[in-house]
Computed example of a mutant assay.
Amino acid sequence: MSIKISDKNREATKTGIYTVLTAATAVPVYFGIDTYLNTIGAQHDEALAVAGTIVFFGCVYIGRHLSTIWSARQREIPKNVLNGLAGAIAVCFVWLFIHADFQFRTFPGINLLLYWMPFVTIGLCTGALIKLFRMSTQKELEAARTQAAHSQSELFLLQSQLSPHFLFNTLNNLYGLSISQHEKIPPLILKLSDLLRYSVYEASETYVPLRDELTYIRNYIDFEQLRMGDRLELQTDIEQVGGPDIRIAPMLLIVFIENAFKHSRNTIDSKVFIEMRLKIWGNSILFYLRNSHNRSAQNDQHVEKHSGFGLANVRKRLQLLYPGQHYLVIDNEENTYTVNLRLNLR
């Protein structure tokens, strides 16, 4: 019952709006027609102007109705139809002024017809153009909303995959240490607790303060340093970010950092190095990461299977969150793996 009442109220409101718009537009239309009739020297111009105004708005509403019937079978409104209607209106306007100077003196009936036909056509085309343009705009907005909703749901799915992905990798690492270096497990579990708290609770937002993300990254680096010990040669130059105004998509950089530690750790070298830099430059966040690895010694299929998910996830999130506002270059050389990423500030 409430739905029916709501629909009736909506229709009444729409009718009221159309009535007000028609009344407001009728005045300039009347004066426009009256001016034209005076120009061509028509008799009883005021009465004709009133009749012309009534005919014009009648044609507008007929045109709207006909366009509604036609568009019901169309998935989208072709642009050439809108352009054709606008062109027809322009041609009819030009014809009305041309015909005023070139009339058939001996055929008054034809003259009258050549006045009213383009006038009626202008009314019909105007009504159809207004309706179809409005419907076209609504369809475009609806398509944009649908795409935005799809992108948002896809983004939520991608973000929901981050925590399980990180947890899977970390538990694998802890399992290895529990066998060979079990004394490191207690402090690592404490670090893991902090990391998971952020990834589960804080990283659910679309954008987070960069300073919070950097705190998370530093905790992760501490976690890896505890694991790798003296084997790791780490160089970091991360700019201090004070306020919460600078924001970034959460868990975006950590995928590259995880891969850097993983690729370095999986080499047979006694020493591995990782170099990491992050700067705010102008309107951009600049991130640079370089790590040692041995491409020929690694099983490419294994790396693709376990590392490719994270990188594919990041690339997709960059497309959704930073469309046309990011620059990513990855160089996978024989002994080094380098990431250069530029993000526009949010």
Results as ranks from 00 to 15, higher is better:
Thr22Trp: 14
Gly310Cys: 05
Thr53Arg: 08
Ser180Gly: 09
Ala47Asp: 02
Glu142Lys: 15
Pro209Asp: 06
Gln240Ala: 14
Thr25Leu: 15
Val314Gly: 04
Ile274Met: 01
Lys8Gln: 09
Lys279Asp: 14
His263Ala: 12
Ala128Phe: 00
Leu113Asn: 03
Gln103Cys: 12
Gly87Thr: 13
Arg10His: 00
Asp237Phe: 00
Phe261Thr: 07
Ile179Phe: 08
Phe107Ser: 08
Arg290Gly: 07
Tyr18Ser: 06
Lys4Ala: 11
His182Gly: 08
Lys4Phe: 15
Gly282Val: 08
Gly176Phe: 02
Glu304Lys: 15
Ile122Phe: 00
Asn313Arg: 07
Leu177Trp: 01
Arg346Gly: 04
Phe223Thr: 02
Ala90Arg: 12
Leu188Asp: 08
Leu234Val: 13
His182Met: 13
Gly176Trp: 01
Met276Thr: 03
Ile69Tyr: 15
His150Phe: 10
Ala12Ser: 06
Glu140Arg: 15
Leu158Pro: 00
Val339Ile: 15
Gly229Pro: 03
Ile185Leu: 12
Pro164Ile: 01
His306Thr: 14
Tyr115Ala: 10
Asn111Cys: 02
Asp194Leu: 03
Leu132Met: 09
Gln325Asp: 12
Pro187Ser: 11
Tyr322Ser: 10
Ile54His: 06
Ile246Asn: 12
Leu188Glu: 13
Lys8Leu: 11
Glu142Met: 10
Pro186Ala: 01
Leu66Cys: 11
Thr170Gln: 08
Leu286Pro: 08
Ile54Gly: 05
Glu205Ala: 01
Val55Tyr: 03
Phe97His: 14
Gly229His: 05
Glu183Cys: 04
Arg75Thr: 12
Gly87Leu: 09
Ser204Gln: 15
Asn9Ile: 02
Val50Asp: 06
Trp281Glu: 12
